[in-house]
Amino acid sequence: MTKPIFAVVALVLAALPLSARADDVKAGQDLALDRAKGNCLACHTLKGGDVPSTVGRELVNMKRRFPNRADLVEILTDEPMRNPIAPMPPFGRNRILTRAEIEQIIDFLYTL
């Protein structure tokens, strides 16, 4: 009697992080495209966006180009600190995006 219940609980537990991640990817995509939030499309071409922008590079092959997640956190938190003439807004530092939102956007970037 107890065995099937354990199995169900184990299955639910295993599935939880997965579904949370899918939500994060979706939330990240919405944040990236939202003009009042990431508005990444103003400067970068990216899949799912409806216009090409060439101010920054196309956001593709993100996992291969940025294997280290911390680099993306840094870029999204304060790119002008890394490159003082970069037009990219300091999203984290200026509190345009919270740390949690930045993490969601990175989840989305890793699907590109």
Binding site: L41, A42, C43, V51, P52, S53, T54, V55, P80, I85, P87, P89, P90, R93, N94, I96
Partner: peptide, 27 residues
């Protein structure tokens, strides 16, 4: 000077990225 919530200056858009595409516009 970088200004506003976006921390951008006039130069951010009209100096180094001049000629690039920003959505439908060419800077």
């Amino acid at each position: 000077a970088r200004k506003g919530q976006l921390g951008m200056s006039c130069a951010s858009c009209h100096v180094s990225p001049a000629g690039e595409r920003m959505r439908g516009d060419i800077l």
